[in-house]
Design a protein around this nucleic acid. Structure first.
Length: 557
RNA sequence: UGACCUAUGGUGUAAUGGUAGCACGGAAGAUUCUGGUUCUUUAAAUCAAGGUUCGAUUCCUUGUAGGUCAACCA
């Protein structure tokens, strides 16, 4: 009992800073329950970086028995589309989360508009007639204070009239904007009279042509949080300079005090996670689409064979903090293997075949049938039968005429090796063509070594194989890395990302598979024994099976 | 150069004033009908300098390094 207590003390739970904040808020009574939100803009597909945000927002709320809203930040109609709304919902569900309320910033346009008028009347907002360029120049720089707009001191009545006429469509795009009246000399650039509304005569994917003025992020986000009574608005660190403004609007409007907290976004070696660049890839047809298995999108890695469990584990392992990070891709791959090890069925596939003729094996219409588990670590996965025959294929690299070192334990001239789930064979002869290339091996087999026979004879090497007679041909697609050829993370601004793409990111080859593989309906990645994890691609047809490589084994040889 | 954020093994992340822990990656070994899995062992870290303190990864000051912000994007 004492030991139990000690054990419990030793395994003290480690908290990230967000958990600490929430626990304090709950303990102090600042909030009664937790309500978070995931606020994507429907202008692209979700990627692995968003997965972190999703797991944090939904996971944190769930941990403290709270709820999470899904809210689409759809305040810019020129970029947004319903196609993205649907894909985002699908991806969140696939990751294993569900929201308690589905909302849209556009649902709140009326309320937002009303609040804008309120700020105008209180003297906190004004209509500016300056051009985009004038506004930009007037803002100053990080070291030079900005200058007040000549329109800054219009009366609330005049501003209200102008703003109503903006709404009524009396002005063209860019002719006028509504700005918050704060401080053009503020050291925080966001406080130099930020824009609240701009004129956009563009149809919106949900509100259609009802509006021709649309709120900016800063005026929509905190207010939307407040409307929904979000208690913890958790976002990435780029927004930390926005927080004072987030608070300013809430304060001036005197509405529900949502609070924003920031964490560092996910960076992964070899992976590019800029939505804009990913969109370029799709538009320029450098990839087949958002779900191309090389893409770091949720749908891309799903098609690649990643499981939602592995991604959730990954986010958990990565942790939450505010410092910049660059996670090694090997951690993601470890999370995948960890999950797949337990649940993937195993099949033998030979990708670079070397033919073997078993000289002393009698060819007959009734070949030997070998019994094998689908997954040695999980008997409930069931079993499979594998037919043996006189001619088989093995992996070319599983034979070495002159072993490279003493540790080599696969096939060599005169040596023995066990065929997985089958007989021990001995290499008797090596046949080469006129160039010296090995074209086939002649072997003998030991009939007493059939699995199940007694006694069991051990053999230090075991290799996989397929029967030449029964094997099926499949297409195998290898993606060495998800995307970049170098450890670039997010590429610097202005670089041509195409130069950095891994030219070998996609290799296709034919392979021989045991027939059972084609009948596997587990729907999750399958292990090609000794090689890695693969999943059947949607491009497969009844007579042409395509497999994508999810990830390799821990080490290959 | 202004404001804000950050700094712990190779990479992440704990320790909030009291033994620097965990994971991935690395190395070594055991088990194994997958050179996988599993198990064991192991090397490796507090940005720097001051200060407060009996005691500092933790608090303060200064510096250094990195990140974010000057879109009618979010």
């Amino acid at each position: 009992m004492n030991k139990e207590v000690n054990k419990g003390a030793a395994e003290k739970e480690s908290h990230n800073f967000l958990e600490e904040i929430i626990e304090n808020d709950l303990a102090s009574g600042k909030v009664k329950s937790v309500l978070t939100r995931f606020p994507p803009e429907p202008n692209g597909y979700l990627h692995i970086g968003h997965a972190k945000s999703i797991c944090i927002n939904f996971g944190l709320a769930a941990k403290y028995h709270g709820k999470t809203n899904l809210r689409f930040d759809d305040t810019n109609p020129v970029k947004e589309d319903t196609e993205y709304v649907d894909s985002i919902k699908e991806d969140i569900h696939w990751l294993g989360f569900d929201w308690s309320n589905e909302g849209y910033a556009s649902d709140y346009f009326d309320q937002l508009y009303e609040w804008a008028e309120k700020l105008i009347m209180k003297g906190y907002a004004y209509v500016d007639d300056q051009t985009q360029e004038e506004i930009h120049k007037g803002r100053g720089t990080v070291s030079v204070p900005g200058k007040n707009s000549p329109y800054r001191d219009r009366s609330p009545e005049e501003n209200l009239d102008l703003f109503r006429r903006m709404k009524a469509g009396e002005f063209a795009d860019g002719e006028k904007v509504l700005r918050a009246k704060i401080d053009m000399a503020s050291p925080n650039m966001l406080f130099r009279d930020p824009l609240m509304y701009r004129i956009l005569h563009t149809s919106h994917h949900r509100t259609g042509n009802k509006w021709c003025i649309y709120p900016m992020y800063d005026f929509a986000h905190g207010e939307s949080d407040s409307i929904e009574n979000i208690t913890h608005s958790i976002c990435t660190k780029e927004f930390d300079v926005h927080r004072p403004l987030y608070d300013w609007f809430i304060d001036k409007l005197d509405i529900f005090p949502s609070h924003q907290y920031e964490f560092a976004r996910l960076n992964l070696t070899y992976i590019m996670m800029s939505k804009r660049k990913l969109l370029d890839m799709v538009n320029q047809k450098i990839v087949s689409g958002w779900d191309d298995p090389r893409m770091p999108t949720i749908c891309g890695i799903r098609r690649r064979g990643y499981t939602p469990e592995s991604i959730r584990t990954f986010v958990e392992k990565v942790g939450v903090a505010k410092r910049e990070n660059m996670i090694d891709l090997s951690l993601l791959e470890w999370c995948l293997r960890e999950d797949l090890n337990k649940r993937s069925n195993r099949y033998m596939v030979v990708q670079d075949p070397l033919k073997i003729v078993i000289d002393n094996y009698e060819e007959s219409s009734e070949d030997d049938i070998m019994d094998a588990p689908k997954n040695q670590e999980n008997e409930s996965a069931g079993r499979r039968s594998i037919k043996f025959s006189k001619e088989i294929y093995i992996e070319r690299k599983d034979f070495q005429e002159i072993p490279e070192n003493r540790k080599f334990r696969r096939l060599k001239p005169g040596g023995e090796v066990r065929l997985k789930y089958s007989y021990i064979i001995k290499c008797e002869d090596v046949i080469k063509d006129e160039n010296g290339k090995i074209i086939e091996l002649h072997c003998s087999y030991d009939p007493t070594t059939k699995p199940g026979s007694n006694p069991w004879r051990k053999c230090k090497g075991t290799i996989h194989w397929v029967s030449a007679k029964y094997a099926k041909t499949i297409e195998v697609r290898h993606y060495d890395r998800l995307f970049l050829k170098e450890d670039m993370g997010n590429l610097p601004e202005g670089t041509d990302y195409k130069e950095f793409l891994n030219p070998d990111s996609l290799k296709i080859n034919e392979a021989y598979a045991e027939p059972n593989l084609l009948e596997d309906n587990s729907g999750i990645s399958v292990q090609f024994e000794r090689d890695g994890y693969y999943i059947k691609d949607k491009d497969s047809t009844p007579d042409h099976f395509v497999f994508n490589k999810a990830t390799g084994m821990k080490s290959s040889f």
